[in-house]
């Protein structure tokens, strides 16, 4: 029996691997992710022997090199893992929700809301510590999403098109206001320059852990709505005929993506391309089933993020390049190649 099935979702047909191959692919992705997790702890801008890395993790002491592993590489690896997973799934969610393969969480104004909140925190309230303005970012993302949800409500329920338009408009207004504040406030300008690059450096574990529960809730909600999103891919009428509650599904999906993308942005700042590109790759591998897309995105996005971060640590030695810049460099050409493929993933 062949492991390939045929999918009919538009002009032409795209071979989709069967469940066994999908599972094997998932295991391969998991192995690659584990390998990158190890490499992320091993590789940095300072050469540290593998034995020291091992001791730092399993026989901790006050050795100065061990601190480099425990205080810097381990936290940024954890941050890369959770931020990547959250961005990947949130990207898949927004693309499914809007049925737009070019959508990413930023299209709902999440990044603009988070950035504006950080600008206000730094520029007007004098918050200088990332542990302080991180929560402003999260709150900014949540507030903008609530506004988008409110503006997107029509008589027929939540309209994806109206929500996207509202997100784009609110994002534009907030970006303008944020820029005005940055240009008149040197402290805000300095912080936002680094923030907007997107980085997982200097994010100690005690900053990351408080965000993780929100990400877990977001992931659970994403799994909950994945079946309904599959039905909605066939069109609202067919989905409704199958018993899908459209508005409830959309609201839950937006809450999920807000928790995921808002949490990820709060930790790392706006990181582009991951949420856009990874769901494409996942769809290309597994087809249109949202459950599989989410599962693959959870693994593939941290793979991309960690690989980009490791690359950013070594290409400009002794300095480093923020991961958000590397993902843009890596992501843009890869995405172009993907969308030019004849059998590019379709929603």
């Amino acid at each position: 029996m062949t492991a390939l099935a045929l999918r009919h979702d538009g002009p032409g047909t795209v071979p989709v691997p069967g469940p066994r191959r999908r599972l094997i692919g998932l295991v391969v992705a998991l192995v690659v992710l584990l390998l990158l997790l190890v490499l992320s702890v091993m590789i940095g801008s300072t050469a540290i022997a593998p034995s020291v890395v091992w001791d730092a993790l399993f026989h901790p002491s006050a050795d100065i090199d061990q601190f480099a592993i425990r205080d810097y590489r381990l936290p940024r690896t954890v941050a890369g893992l959770v931020v990547g997973a959250a961005l990947g799934v949130s990207g898949a969610l927004i693309q499914a929700l809007t049925r737009n393969p070019l959508a990413d969480p930023g299209i709902l104004g999440l990044h603009a809301g988070a950035s504006f909140a950080v600008t206000v925190a730094v520029g007007l309230l004098g918050v200088r510590d990332i542990g302080g303005y991180m929560w402003f970012a999260f709150a900014g993302a949540l507030i903008v999403t609530l506004m988008v949800l409110a503006l997107g409500a029509t008589r027929q329920g939540q309209s994806p098109v109206v929500m996207v338009l509202a997100g784009v408009c609110i994002g534009a207004v907030l970006r303008g206001a944020g820029s005005a504040l940055e240009l008149t406030n040197p402290a805000a300008f300095d912080v936002m320059r680094a923030w907007n690059a997107g980085s997982i450096v200097a994010r100690p574990l005690d900053l990351v852990w408080p965000i993780v529960p929100f990400l877990v809730v977001g992931l659970v909600l994403a799994v909950v709505v994945s079946g309904s999103l599959n039905a909605m891919a066939l069109g609202d009428d067919l989905a409704a005929a199958q018993g899908v509650r459209l508005t409830r599904t959309r609201v839950l999906a937006i809450i999920a993506l807000t928790l995921l993308a808002g949490g990820a942005t709060a930790i790392a700042g706006p990181i582009g391309f991951v949420g856009l590109m990874v769901p494409h790759v996942a769809r290309w591998i597994v087809g249109p089933n949202q459950r599989w897309i989410f599962a693959y995105s959870v693994l593939l996005a941290p793979i991309l993020l960690l690989a980009s971060d490791i690359l950013g640590r070594v290409v400009m030695h002794p300095s480093e390049i923020p991961v958000g810049i590397v993902t843009a460099f890596v992501g843009a050409p890869v995405l172009i190649v993907l969308v030019r493929r004849k059998k590019a993933s379709r929603l």
Binding site: A68, D71, A202, P318
Partner: peptide
């Protein structure tokens, strides 16, 4: 002008 990551603080030894 070169920003060094904190893990290179050890290099000041």
């Amino acid at each position: 002008w070169t920003a060094l990551p904190f893990e290179q603080i050890a290099g000041l030894s």
